Amino acid sequence: MNRICFYDTKPYDKKYFEANKDKYGFEIDYFEEKLNSKTAIMAKGYEAVVAFVNDTIDKKTVDILYENGVRLIAMRCAGYNNIDFKAAYGKIHVVRVPAYSPYAVAEHAMALLLTLNRKIHKSYNRTREFNFSLNGLTGFDLHGKTVGVIGTGKIGRIFIDICKGFGMNVIAYDLFPIKDSDIHYVPFDELCKQSDIISLHCPLTKETFHLINEDSIGKMKKGVIILNTSRGALINSEDLLSGLKDSIIGGAGLDVYEEETDLFYEDMSYTIIQDDILSRMISMPNVIVTSHQAFLTEEALSNIADTTFANLQEFFLGSSLSNEICYQCGKGEACNKKQNGKCF
């Protein structure tokens, strides 16, 4: 029986993986600890580990995993900016779940926008205390407003469809625009100038790191609402806080945060948070922070489990790794995957 260990396991993870493991013949041990250089030794004796978005898979972690027999890292998420691929190449294969439910993330982005705009969170707290005043709860019609969508992958396109359903004017920016689509692409600076709402749906790369910063915020409409359900480091948090304080930014709906690793997915309610930027933003009435939960639907969790198990099965059977993240691709070097179905 193939032995696998899970890192950073939560009850909702275990429920969906336990429901399907027997049909694949896997023996699974679950660790609550995040994967990093201090916990990698726990994987000794396992050939594969399953990791998550906030694990730290740097060179030291990769080397410890490899020295202890691990040959596959299966990410149970789409993102992989937390992995040192130079260190992993030639040693450990890395696979991911490229799509689990783009609807879940896009719908959460719209939920953040609706809640921020119509002050649902404020109204909820008031009525629980039998305060039925409407003062301070005024929002605006989404119909006719311009939303700028950054990133037009599956999630971005579904969010565009949702916005069109509200009668919104949609413009978009993407480093790689979809050819022959009906999406109205504009340059990034133009998107910043025109948009009443900006929603981020792009991966974190060198090109998109701190895409939202002091310079881009300075070009935005006064009162713009910014939504981020992608990766925290797409936004310079200090600059976002300044924009909120100066009332350039009218509101922010954040499901991710660039320094979330040691905070999100954990109960910190009895802890004094040392991150002053996050603490100040959470205290603001026009900011909503959710704990990286946009993916959290029954459909998404089921799809994550199914795809992760399929990825693991391909590896143990010696098959092509259909969802492998290939370090060589796009680097101007020959790609083995085209010949043998694996990155190396």
Rank of each mutant, 00 (worst) to 15 (best):
E207N: 12
K193R: 13
G151M: 00
G148M: 13
D141V: 03
D141S: 10
S230R: 02
K222M: 06
V170L: 05
I160E: 14
T229S: 08
V149R: 02
I183S: 09
F159D: 01
D215R: 14
E190K: 15
D141I: 03
G167W: 14
G218C: 10
F188L: 15
E190C: 13
T208M: 13
G223I: 08
S237Q: 15
D180L: 11
G232T: 07
G223M: 12
I225S: 01
V224W: 07
S199E: 07
P177L: 12
T205C: 00
E238M: 11
L204M: 07
G144P: 00
I197W: 05
E207C: 05
H184T: 10
P203V: 06
V149L: 10
K154D: 09
K145A: 03
I150D: 02
S237I: 08
I217M: 13
V149I: 15
T208E: 11
M220Q: 11
H143C: 14
I235C: 04
H201V: 00
E207F: 09
I162S: 13
I235K: 12
G165Q: 06
V186C: 15
D196A: 06
K193D: 05
A172N: 00
F159R: 04
I198P: 02
C192E: 07
K221R: 12
C192S: 10
L227F: 08
G218Q: 08
D174T: 04
G232N: 08
G139V: 10
V147I: 15
H143N: 15
C192W: 08
K193C: 03
G167L: 14
Q194Y: 12
V147F: 09
V186L: 15
F166T: 06
V186A: 13
V149K: 00
V147K: 03
D141C: 06
C192H: 11
S181E: 08
H201C: 03
L175R: 07
P203F: 06
I150Y: 07
R231D: 02
D180H: 13
F166E: 11
T146E: 05
